[in-house]
């Protein structure tokens, strides 16, 4: 980063001599030369965090993905080895090869994307009206309503998924209710199906959809809707032409916050899904802990990351656009 003061003009010779520089000035000059400004210092924290807890672990996973499985601890071959007075670098693509050899992984990826996509749509269609209702509620009622959205986080995620098991099972709450109301005569098979996975993901990730949607809807200027009505737009038309486009950043943010973790979701398909519910998170777990094939598991993880970089870039793009507007 160039020092921000680089544009400051040098004192011209016509001016009277400048007072001798103090120690503080000199220190500042040195730190500026090094690019160490106050602003840089503030940004350093998050950078250090990302390097330490994202980039370095990523490199480790990348390294494992190009190794071969081995019996021992750790259960993979070394990347660089000292053999006969020379360095041997072992790079094997057998982990990645497995991704293509067995169409199980491709199907698991596609199925994960499908489940994540459908769940995201469900979250959007359930979450948008909720976010809208909270954003347009009287101001003193918004706090408690938001509280209700966040309240489930007080309970462990795992316990909430277990709770869904007892709701959805054959003799569970839902089936008992429907049976006693006479709507159905035989219990519905929901638990251990894809439907249960959709319900579980939609339920668990709904707050991540509602919160960003609420944030964009809440700061929307209500007079814009009045202006639209004044110009002859019926309420539904005002929603489509004004509210919806202006809440697009919230829709994008919420959708990505749901979609990205849902693709790699492991706990929900394991507990609620059937044995045939194919999701990449589950396959990854199996490779890691059941087959102890760390290189293949790492390769799956790297490929998953590559799959998700696309949506993240879209997110970044929209966020950038939003900030442009905000600067106005």
């Amino acid at each position: 980063m160039p020092p921000p003061t680089a544009a400051a003009p040098q004192p011209s010779p016509a001016l009277p001599p400048v007072a001798p520089r103090t120690v503080k000035d000199r220190v500042l000059r040195v730190t500026r030369r090094l690019g160490l400004t106050g602003r840089g210092g503030v940004i350093l924290g998050p950078y250090a965090w990302l390097v330490l807890f994202f980039f370095i672990p990523f490199l480790i996973v990348l390294k494992i993905s190009v190794a071969e499985p081995a019996v021992g601890i750790p259960p993979f071959t070394k990347l660089i080895e000292w053999v006969d007075g020379g360095l041997d670098v072992h790079i094997r693509f057998s982990g990645f090869q497995a991704l293509f050899d067995d169409d199980l992984y491709l199907l698991a990826y596609l199925n994960s994307l499908k489940i994540a996509f459908v769940s995201t749509l469900c979250c959007l269609f359930i979450g948008y009206p909720m976010a809208y209702a909270i954003a347009t509620a009287p101001e003193k009622r918004r706090g408690p309503l938001l509280m209700l959205i966040i309240l489930p986080f007080w309970t462990s995620f795992l316990i909430r998924v277990y709770a869904w098991m007892s709701i959805l099972k054959d003799e569970g709450l839902l089936n008992n209710l429907l049976l006693s109301l006479g709507i159905i005569h035989e219990p519905l098979k929901i638990l251990y199906t894809d439907l249960a996975v959709y319900i579980g993901i939609t339920y668990s990730y709904l707050p991540f959809m509602i919160l960003p949607l609420y944030a964009t809807l809440e700061k929307m200027d209500h007079t814009l809707l009045e202006a639209a009505a004044d110009l002859g737009a019926r309420p539904w038309k005002s929603f489509l032409t004004i509210t919806l486009p202006l809440s697009l950043p919230g829709i994008v943010a919420g959708s990505l916050l749901v979609f990205i973790p849902a693709v790699g979701e492991f706990v929900i398909p394991s507990l609620l899904g059937g044995s045939d519910t194919l999701m990449i998170g589950r396959e990854l777990w199996n490779l890691f802990f059941n087959s102890r094939d760390w290189p293949s598991a790492s390769a799956v993880a790297i490929a998953l990351l590559a799959f998700l970089v696309g949506p993240i870039m879209i997110f970044q793009h929209f966020q950038g656009r939003d900030q442009d507007k905000g600067a106005a």
Binding site: T223, E226, A227, G232
Partner: peptide, 27 residues
Amino acid sequence: PYDRPVNMMFQSYALFPHMTVENNVAF
């Protein structure tokens, strides 16, 4: 409001921020 033969100019102008000047006027 959408059925009244009346138009209003708002104090805050209430221009649609996601539309061009042209589209605002055409709305």
